[in-house]
Amino acid sequence: MGILQNILEQVINGLRSGSIYALIALGYTMVYGIAKMINFAHGDIIMVGAYALYVGITLLHLPIVAAVLFSIAVCTILGVVIERVAYKPLRSAPPLAVLITAIGVSFLLQSLSLLIFGATPIPQASIVTFEGIKIGGVSISGITIVTLIVTTICMIVLTWFIHKTKMGSAMRAVSEDKGAAELMGIDVNKTISLTFAIGSALAAIAGILYVCQYQSLRPTLGAMPGIKAFVAAVLGGIGSVPGAMLGGVILGLIESLSKAYISTELSDAIVFGILVLVLLVKPSGLLGKIRKEKV
């Protein structure tokens, strides 16, 4: 295999994991934009989505499409419930308290799935049976193609939703100025719930795509993609929807290329090094706005 093909394959791998990061990063960025908090439990919603798929297919014997919808529904409801129960009482609390609660929720989800499903990894076959294609010596797996198509569709729909619908403009208004939006008659609580619902649904899709790639379930499977997606959101500029998409793709490419050409062990260090670097050089990220406390 030629070097060019090799590089191309790594780029395509990077695009695949990058587009999954982008889906997850969208949840972080939307929630941050609207509720001004880092939803640390977001990564674990991915894990719940993956387990829900397993429950749907293996335990409930649902057809694949129904199992996918089941997983999305479970995550959407879970996202809204988490917001209502854990975050809503803390709307006026200091950010430190909210962040600690979010870490608590993340731990809660992980330990519950550990108690229910055990620590031993559960195998879960991919729901994508399509074999993949080979173009000019570069082979692209079926799951890669499906991932790229699904994430592209999600992003287009989301962008349309945010910019062209009434609920989308309500979301933008709340993220701009919560108080003013409320005075304009926007139901802030409903908008926040909606944001959590959309973010969690996207996380469920990401979880399904992720498990189809790695074909194994663990209670901690969401932690690493979650944190990396957060890095992607910061890289793109937290609060910015196109920024999350761009950041996710860039991060996936960097990770895939550094794994292939630098060192597998150090690829995590490189990813986190990028986070530190971005925050030092341009804390607002590639496409974000900076907010400074008013004196």
């Binding site: 854990a86 009482p89 803390l90 006026s92 609390a93 308290a97 909210v98 600690i100 609660t101 870490i103 608590g104 929720v105 993340s106 731990f107 809660l108 992980q110 330990s111 519950l112 550990l114 108690l115």
Partner: peptide, 16 residues
Amino acid sequence: MLLYAIVLIAMMIFNS
């Protein structure tokens, strides 16, 4: 871990 999770959430909600 469950205990830790509950401690974190409960303490924060209780505090505020």
